[in-house]
Amino acid sequence: MPAVTAPSRAPRSASVMPDTPGWARWANDHRKWLFAAPAMAFVAALIIFPLAWTGYLSLTDSSGSVRAESEFIGFQNYVDVLGDTDRFWPAVGRTAAFTGVALFFEVVLGMAIALLLWRPFRGEKWVRVAILLPLVATPVAVGMMWRLIFDPNIGMANQVLGWLGIGPQPWLAGQHTALPTTIFIDIWQWTPMVVLILLAGLTSLSDEPQEAAMIDGASAWQRFRHVTLPLLMPTVIVAILLRGIDALKTFDILYATKGRGGGSFNEVETLNVYAYGLSFDYNEYGLSSTVLILFFLIIIGSMWALTSRRKGADR
């Protein structure tokens, strides 16, 4: 009996007629990119045009109005901003402090809460709903709510301290307490987002390594340190990347709680608040654009560092 051979699969381009023009064959081979090209071009235009315009304004002395005549002054704005030790560099320090402290506590608390929610228990759904409630409100609404809670005269926070025999605190009104208070507000609202990311990573882990560690007699802490955390590290890096970039750009909570300039003594003035003030309070569009370009470079550098760390974790 003659051997039966399976028909070989025709190449992808075989469905195109032999007499089809070359450009049609090329379009058929690259159709997935051609279909996505309009959307990619639109998104690129939305990113490139504002960035290019901001970069151009940073090289001019534009002020008063964006339609007013301005002169090209090169990198003089960058020299002025980088030499500003009164507002720019303190704003950089506050931005770094706000982002670093908030991110640290959000990741630590998010990890603890995610581990508690990892295993099923009675009332689990209600607990998850309660934890996610801070994400429902907008940051401006959250800022206004906590501004009332931390009010030195009528705020609930000082009333609770009074019941405990502790004197009233300035909270948002104090020069040295305003930044820690706004960091607390950010932690309260955005820790649930970290919980969601880490909980998704935990539920995707296999139970076999945990069971093997338990058989070997490893304690709960040892299983977390040597099994769970290494397996979860790529997800942790993703959470740090997403939340870190978002924390760097925080504006609404700070402006809702302290107003223009980040307070009377610029106590919570980060780079976002500083750039906003230069644009809309002083109409210094050239200087404001310079601050935004430098801020953009800081964000890009942070993304590159965290992405490199994630690649190392994946290996």
Score class of each variant (00 low, 15 high):
residue 95 T to D: 06
residue 110 G to N: 07
residue 101 V to E: 05
residue 96 A to V: 15
residue 114 A to H: 10
residue 97 A to R: 08
residue 105 F to D: 11
residue 109 L to C: 11
residue 60 T to H: 01
residue 101 V to Q: 05
residue 114 A to I: 06
residue 55 G to E: 09
residue 68 A to M: 09
residue 114 A to Q: 10
residue 72 F to W: 14
residue 60 T to Q: 00
residue 76 Q to A: 12
residue 111 M to F: 15
residue 56 Y to A: 08
residue 102 A to Y: 03
residue 63 S to C: 05
residue 81 V to R: 03
residue 50 P to R: 07
residue 92 V to D: 00
residue 107 V to G: 01
residue 60 T to M: 01
residue 100 G to H: 07
residue 93 G to P: 09
residue 84 D to V: 02
residue 113 I to A: 06
residue 113 I to C: 05
residue 58 S to R: 00
residue 66 V to A: 01
residue 85 T to N: 13
residue 112 A to K: 03
residue 106 E to F: 00
residue 84 D to C: 05
residue 80 D to K: 04
residue 92 V to L: 06
residue 112 A to Y: 08
residue 75 F to N: 05
residue 82 L to Y: 02
residue 109 L to G: 04
residue 85 T to A: 07
residue 99 T to M: 10
residue 77 N to I: 02
residue 57 L to R: 11
residue 110 G to L: 06
residue 97 A to L: 14
residue 99 T to P: 01
residue 90 P to C: 02
residue 103 L to H: 08
residue 70 S to E: 11
residue 95 T to M: 11
residue 104 F to S: 15
residue 104 F to Q: 08
residue 74 G to P: 04
residue 61 D to W: 05
residue 86 D to V: 01
residue 91 A to G: 03
residue 87 R to F: 13
residue 95 T to R: 06
residue 53 W to Q: 14
residue 52 A to N: 03
residue 57 L to W: 14
residue 81 V to D: 04
residue 83 G to R: 04
residue 62 S to C: 15
residue 80 D to L: 04
residue 104 F to C: 13
residue 103 L to Q: 06
residue 83 G to H: 05
residue 103 L to M: 10
residue 81 V to L: 05
residue 50 P to M: 11
residue 88 F to D: 05
residue 51 L to I: 10
residue 62 S to I: 15
residue 114 A to L: 09
residue 53 W to Y: 15
residue 73 I to N: 02
residue 78 Y to E: 13
residue 72 F to A: 07
residue 113 I to T: 08
residue 58 S to Q: 02
residue 80 D to S: 11
residue 113 I to E: 00
residue 74 G to K: 04
residue 106 E to Q: 15
residue 54 T to L: 05
residue 65 S to E: 07
residue 104 F to G: 14
residue 55 G to V: 08
residue 107 V to R: 02
residue 65 S to A: 15
residue 98 F to A: 09
residue 96 A to E: 07
residue 95 T to F: 12
residue 85 T to Y: 09
residue 76 Q to P: 06
residue 101 V to A: 04
residue 57 L to Y: 15
residue 72 F to Y: 12
residue 59 L to C: 07
residue 88 F to A: 04
residue 78 Y to S: 09
residue 51 L to S: 12
residue 86 D to T: 10
residue 114 A to R: 03
residue 52 A to R: 04
residue 66 V to K: 00
residue 93 G to H: 10
residue 52 A to H: 10
residue 70 S to L: 11
residue 112 A to L: 15
residue 101 V to H: 02
residue 74 G to H: 02
residue 55 G to A: 13
residue 114 A to C: 07
residue 106 E to H: 02
residue 76 Q to S: 12
residue 92 V to W: 03
